[in-house]
Write a protein that binds this DNA or RNA. Sequence first.
DNA 1: ATGAAAGCGCTAACAT
DNA 2: ATGTTAGCGCTTTCAT
Lengths: 341, 341
Amino acid sequence: MTVKIKDVARRAGVSVTSVSRVLNGEKYVSEDILNRVNQAIEELNYSPSYIARSLKKQKTNTIGVIVPDLTSNFYSTILSSIEETASKYGYNLIVCNIAENLSKELKYLHIFQEMRVEGIIIMHEKTNEEIVNFIRNATMPILFSSVQSPDADFISVLIDDYQAAYDATEYLIRSGHTAISYLGGDLEDVTSGQNRYNGFRDALSKHHITIPEEYVKFGDYKLPSGHRLMGELLALAQPPTVVFAASDDMAVGALNCVLDQGFRVPEDVSIMGFDGSTITDIVRPSITSMQQPIYEMGQVSLENLHRLIIRDKHRPQADIMLQHQLVERESCKTMHPSNSR
Amino acid sequence: MTVKIKDVARRAGVSVTSVSRVLNGEKYVSEDILNRVNQAIEELNYSPSYIARSLKKQKTNTIGVIVPDLTSNFYSTILSSIEETASKYGYNLIVCNIAENLSKELKYLHIFQEMRVEGIIIMHEKTNEEIVNFIRNATMPILFSSVQSPDADFISVLIDDYQAAYDATEYLIRSGHTAISYLGGDLEDVTSGQNRYNGFRDALSKHHITIPEEYVKFGDYKLPSGHRLMGELLALAQPPTVVFAASDDMAVGALNCVLDQGFRVPEDVSIMGFDGSTITDIVRPSITSMQQPIYEMGQVSLENLHRLIIRDKHRPQADIMLQHQLVERESCKTMHPSNSR
DNA sequence: ATGAAAGCGCTAACAT
DNA sequence: ATGTTAGCGCTTTCAT
């Protein structure tokens, strides 16, 4: 049916080996054969089979990626960065968007295994026993990106979420805020749930600040939950002076809620985000946020997965921590007496 | 090295054929063999090779997707929808983000070909001779999503961009605007460049409205270009009363420019977007936009690519037009005397 | 109902 | 420098 290496060989009047050699750019091919083969390839419009080659070489140059939510700017930016780096290293990407569906994740992990991908990047933290089990028994390297791995044996590329949340909270305190609210993610998530929340709590304790328990609420990282939760906060007799959200999307939800009710940010309420997605710079007022090095995260993830794959001597032995950085924009005001109106 | 079908057969004490039958859920296998094989698979933690199977069956269940910009909400939403539908049909997705890089696109088209993907979805319109040439000679179905194909022989799934822009412009005119500005995309792009611009122009002509040529400016669909172009508009002695942007991102850029200069939307300037990405509902004021059925577009694209692949008798013979719809939000005010302040 | 063996398209010894 | 051939791991006739 389709034209194969044998056809090219016949057309060029050489052996399949010679064609293979030309295909793989090996030496020991005369100029004459090189030309004849290339011409035959051209004439027959021959395209070598990646599949046959993969089978023979036991190598696929393929990496599987599991994304929690493709439509999220945070994840799609990491994915974009992974893709760009993968392309440079000659890897192709199989992408699975799991959309909160753990059984889909498990299914795709098995498909990745059957496809003999050379490595897997997972950007999802929620997990279950079957998945952990799969990961433990997997034959190929698996790397977690932007989240903590469920098992100390696996490498994660991420920031120190605890410290980042701690630093962000301290910034708020230093700005004179004491009525600080926290809009958290899911406490089942270690990275973005527990670590960030603990960082927040500990910064408060360190500075001997106590807040009413209604100031702490948990959502799902997405915009609508930030909007809803902010509504509850504004309905309080004593609303907080600042809201620290565990994701930028929740921060934007909170911002819109404040705006929609006719209040101003940061004059009436300050808002701090987390992640540093592009959205922080798009909305008005722009949102002060604890910035993750999103683009770098994708690149570093792929580079280290590659090291794991080739068993490089510099391959990572432990989690790789990237730097967080607070980026001040317009949504947080300082409460210091000297700076206040 | 890895455990293969032969090992399973030996362990279960049956032939490889029987193992293969169990693997593929064929009938004509006794309960006894079924159990023994399944047990052997379990014990050996056997994972069948997708590659060997693909080679033998000459079928990969894989689809290649070319995305112009993964970080764009518009494209990532379509991709997400394609992924979801693909998963239902049992296809795996190889994703390439070309980021304006035509040589990368060509390279990946060849890789897709070598990988023997069963179909390709392209969401990118800019093209060159080599790419068109590849597409013409391709052995697998290629479908264009959200953009016009460069060749009438190929199927596109998209809206009627001309009519949509025409309708949007007419809406503005009916709202009493006559000083209408257009922030276009790249005129090299048929779909989002030429068609939208022509729809705009023709609606104006139809209603005998002429605008100064400085009211028409072209950017690159992205936010910063909208911001920059809006700055030029505001510097005019007679700025327009409404700006129609060829993409939501440009509309947001324009919005921010107006806001950043201390003016109000829609009181001072109205803004109309195009695409209906989620961003239109996120910013404040929210943006009135010509909505594309983004999610549906991904689904319909994949379904029809599937029909093309299986040579279904209902497979599409011509472009598939989806409905556009103007969604009114907060960024456009009506200028009718009766409704004005 | 089960098995033996050919072959999918390629690469890599090995031989010359 | 070039060619012959075995075999990657599976499916699928074809026998039995």
